[in-house]
């Protein structure tokens, strides 16, 4: 077995405020190197909290998180920024390309911050453009792209600095089914050929069926996990089964009702 890229040990996150809210409760899992993991759960199950912890924008109340052999909790603000810049790639649901930069510039952005030589940056952009099929649109601006093209660019930006892990937050949430399929196949391809570890948070069982493993959480606690099998169709069916066990629709709002 290979070394785990992400290691979570009994992670608990409690938000203190007027109402104390336990967002994560003793969550415990590993992600192996080169693994493609989906995290599913109904709204309010703590997915966003989990992502924030992995991104090191938040720290756990109890427990330990190790990413790529580093404990972000122990880093200074500055080191955390550098850690994100070098270790983590991030793909958002709302894509979030910088509007004033072209596709090429968006791709190269994380590298410029690290002051790589221009030649090296050009080479990497070329590689990436070829892999992601972005060659024709390098000079375009984000508002001239289709949703799929924009998300492919964002994935390129997340990968260009060769991070040890890519975090994806509903990467297909805003896309039509065709673009979503493209993006998922791209992620799968990258995962298989580049051995990049990916953690994807999603509501969509189809998206989850592209992964090696699906982790279900409910109300901040581990609920279940299932591994992929030979055919995606059956894997998809099994995911749906677990979701129905989770109770109700995954898209349910968790409302607070008073009598």
């Amino acid at each position: 077995m290979t070394q785990p890229v992400v290691k979570m040990e009994d992670v608990t996150k409690i938000y203190e405020g007027k109402v104390i809210h336990r967002a994560l409760n003793q969550l415990d899992f590993d992600v192996q190197e080169g693994e493609f993991v989906a995290i599913m759960g109904p709204s309010g199950s703590g997915k966003t909290t989990l992502l924030n912890l992995l991104m090191a924008t938040d720290i756990p109340t109890y427990g330990k998180i190790v990413i790529g052999g580093v404990e972000p909790e122990k880093l200074s603000q500055n080191q955390i920024a550098l850690f994100r810049r070098r270790q983590i790639g991030f793909v958002f649901q709302e894509i979030n390309l910088l509007q004033m930069l072209t596709v090429e510039e968006n791709l190269v952005l994380p590298l410029t911050l690290d002051g790589l030589p221009v030649e090296e940056m050009k080479k990497r952009v070329e590689d990436m453009a070829q892999k992601l099929n972005l060659g024709d649109i390098l000079e375009r601006r984000p508002d001239e792209l289709s949703g799929g093209q924009a998300q492919r660019t964002a994935i390129g930006r997340a990968l260009i600095h060769q991070p040890s892990i890519v975090l994806a937050d509903e990467p297909t949430g805003n896309l039509d089914s065709k673009s979503a399929k493209d993006v998922l196949e791209l992620l799968e391809h990258i995962n298989q050929h580049e051995k990049t570890s990916i953690i994807m948070v999603t509501h969509d069982p189809i998206a989850a069926s592209y992964c090696d493993r699906v982790l279900f959480i409910k109300d901040g606690e581990f609920f279940n996990e299932i591994y992929k099998d030979e055919r995606r169709q059956t894997f998809f069916q099994r995911i749906l089964n677990v979701l129905s066990l989770l109770g109700g629709n995954v898209n349910d709002f968790s409302t607070v009702r008073l009598p």
């Binding site: 924008t57 979030n96 994380p110």
Partner: peptide
């Protein structure tokens, strides 16, 4: 603000 959030996730330090 949204842009700042993006930059922060890409890994920009406060000083930068």
């Amino acid at each position: 603000r949204r842009q700042y959030a993006v930059l922060q996730r890409i890994g920009m330090t406060d000083r930068e």
